[in-house]
């Protein structure tokens, strides 16, 4: 089991960030190396160049709304994003993140509790969120054990490989 506590630097984004922003349709069949260059470019052109492995997205309501494209989550993984903490997550995006082993936490109130560049600490097991810079603490919803197991295995394909003994 990987560590349940994550810490990282925050990138803050607003409500209704769609899969078209996370993975524009024009690059639908391009490689992840191409796709990841266009993540969120329409809302924050410097994100792709400045994001560091281990950074965390703190986002508003309905993050990842729109298409079923798993590339929306995969592109963030490829950029090294460690976790997404959201007011709420679109259903398929949440499913895809878990399937890829990318931790997500739903935490009402989180969007107003962080600014860009602040440090966040996340306990995935309990759902507790801390703003290291301001000291603010919030209680998010911990993921159900069924989803945490998939995350801990490293994603749904790792689960499949383990089941198949491969």
């Amino acid at each position: 089991m990987t560590s349940d506590v994550l810490a990282g630097k925050v990138w803050r984004f607003d409500h209704d960030i769609s899969t078209d922003l996370l993975s524009p349709g024009a690059y639908a069949v391009d490689s992840v190396e191409v796709r990841k260059q266009h993540v969120l470019e329409s809302v924050n052109p410097s994100f792709v160049s400045d994001v560091q492995p281990g950074d965390v997205l703190v986002v508003g309501r309905n993050f990842g709304c729109g298409s079923s494209r798993e590339t929306a989550a995969e592109n963030l993984v490829a950029l090294g994003v460690a976790c997404i903490v959201a007011e709420s997550l679109a259903r398929i995006f949440m499913r895809n993140a878990v399937a890829l082993g990318l931790p997500v936490v739903v935490c009402p109130g989180v969007h107003e509790s962080f600014d860009d560049g602040e440090r966040i600490e996340i306990d995935l097991a309990s759902g507790r969120i801390v703003n290291v810079d301001t000291g603010a603490e919030l209680q998010g919803d911990s993921l159900p054990p069924e989803m945490r197991e998939i995350l801990a295995s490293g994603g749904i394909l790792a689960v499949l490989r383990a089941q198949a003994g491969r």
């Binding site: 079923s68 398929i92 399937a99 749904i156 499949l160 198949a164």
Partner: peptide, 30 residues
Amino acid sequence: GTDSHTTTHGALGAGGTGIGTSDMVYALAT
């Protein structure tokens, strides 16, 4: 379906829902 608009098939009373590629690999395998 690997498409968010798989909900369409609820028009005929079917539970249609979108999933991503990894979940689809798992579904096709098992």
